[in-house]
Write a protein that binds this DNA or RNA. Sequence first.
DNA 1: GATACCTCAAAATA
DNA 2: CTATTTTGAGGTAT
Length: 531
Amino acid sequence: MVRARVAASQADMLQVRNMVRRARLIFEALRGRCHRNTEHHHAGRNRADMRALSAMIDGELCLYRDVRIVGPVPGVLVGDAFNYRAELLVVGLHCHTQAGIGYVPASQVSEGHPVATSIVSSGGYLDDHDNGDVLMYTGSGGRPRNGGDHLSDQEFQRGNLALSYSYNYDVEVRVIRCHDCDASPSGKLYVYDGLYKVQSTTYGPGKSGREVCRFKLVRLPGQDALGSNTWRAARDLTDALVAKIRPPGYLTMDMSKGKEAVPVPVRNTVDQDVSPLEFEYLACSEFPAPPKPVRRGHKCCIYSKTACSEMSSKCAPSGCACVKRSGGGGPAYSADGTLVRGRPVVYECGARCGCPPRSCPNRVTQRGMKHRLEVFRSKETEWGVRTLDLIQPGAFLCEFTGDVLPADHPRIANANTNASTGASMEEWGGIVDPRKFPPRWREWGDAPAAVLPDDGEEPPRFAQCPAPGYVIDVSKRRNFAAYISHSRAPNAFVQLVVRGDEDESCPHLMVFAMETIPPMRELSIDYGVDQ
DNA sequence: GATACCTCAAAATA
DNA sequence: CTATTTTGAGGTAT
C-alpha cells in the first residue's frame, strides 16, 4: 500500500517535472524566434521575452494559470533557476512581470482578503536585509518605478496587504532571489529558494525617511539546501579552482590530469572512498578505424577556409554537406554552440572537411568541455556528477567514454547491463549499452516545434542512422561521465554524434543538457535500465 | 467589459 | 562602464 502510493507520487513527480520542462522549452523556443524576428518591432525595442510570454498566454501554454497556487508549485524544485521574470509566469511560480509581490486577489479568497503567493527579492531596496534563512523584505509603493529612494509613504495595499495577511493566516510564501549572472541572456538569474513564512510585519520610517512596510520572512526547515546560498558557494568554489587553491574535501583538482579542456575536481566529504582516482582516464573513446573510407570523396566546407565562421556563408547553414546530412531543416547547433534540437544522429564536420576546427560551428563536441563539472561523493547516489556553472539547455557537457567492444563480443552475453543506481560496477559488469538509451533526443527541441505555428519551415526529416554496433566497457578505462546517475526525469541526455567520414555504426556518445541546470545540481541521464 | 493605474524588467541610450 | 531613459507587459481594482 505504502509502496504503491510512493510509486504513484514518484510517477506524478516525473510527469509534473516534465510538464515544467516542456513549458520552459517552449518559452525558450518562442523567445529565440521572437529575438530573430524583429520585423514587427523596431530593432531596438524588442522584448522577445514578453512577446514569447504573450504567445504562451494566448495559446494557453502557461502552467497553473487557472489556479493561483499558495505553497509549492508542482514540478518546480528548490534551486531551479530562471533567466527572465516572464519565465516565472510560464511555470506559475510568480504572477507578475515586474511587481515584486504576487498574491491571490481578495475577490478569490473566501475570507475576502488578499494572500501573498510569492515574492521576488532583487536586493534593490535600501531597507532590505538578507541572511539567506532570514529575509527582511520591503513592501512596494512610494518609490519611482525604475528605482531610487522612496518619495512618499507606503501603505498596506495590494501586495503589502497580502503579505500582512500571509502573516495573519500563517501561510507559506515562495521566495525567488535575483542575482547578477553573466551566463544568463538577461544578465540576471532568478533562483527559487523555497518556502518562507512571514514572522513579523512592521511599519515605520525607512532609511529614506519615508514610512515603509517591512516584512521579516523566515525560511521553513526541512527543505533542500538554499538555492541562492549554494549558488554563491559554487561561485566561490569556482574562484578557488581558478586560483588553484585546493579546498578541504577534494581528492584532486583534476582527475583527468589535463586531458579534458576543463579540470574535473573530485570531492569526497562523506567517506574514505577514492575509487574515481584509481583507473586510467580516457577523455575520448577510441573507435576502430573503418575498414575503408566510408564516404569516398567526402566533401564539406570546400569553398572557403573561413566560411564556417560566417553563418551566412556557403558553408553553414545551407551549403555544408555535413549540416545537410543531419537533416532536420537546419544546423544542429546555433552560433553559440547550443544544440538546437535533438536528432537520431548529428553529423559534425570532421578530419577531411576543409573548415577550421577551432571556429567551425558544426564541430561543437570536438572542442571539448566548456562547463565546470565535479565528481562528488553523496550518501544517496554514492558517486555523482554535478555542475559548478549555470548550464543553459542544449549546452554540450561531455563525452561518455570507455573501451569500445563490438556488440557481439562474448563478454556481453554474460554481462548484466542493468546499471541501476545502487548496484556497484562489479555487479553490473561495467557494460553500458547505448542501444538501451531511450530516444530522449525526441524531447529536446521537439515540444516547441509541436506547438509553434509553421512559418514556412517544413517538418524536419531526420537522417537515419544504424543502431550503434558497440557497447562501452567502463570497468577499466573511462571518464567522469560514468559517474552520472540514472533518472527517468533526467536533466541531460545522450546525443549520438558522427564526425566527417567516421563509421556510422560507431557514433560518439555525447551528453547535452536538456534543461536549465543550476549550480551544484546533480546531472542525470536516462540509461533505460528500468521501466 | 472597458479603463486607469500599478510594478524589485529589460533593452537602449547618454 | 554606470546611470538614466524608454518602452510596455500582465495583474489588479474600479
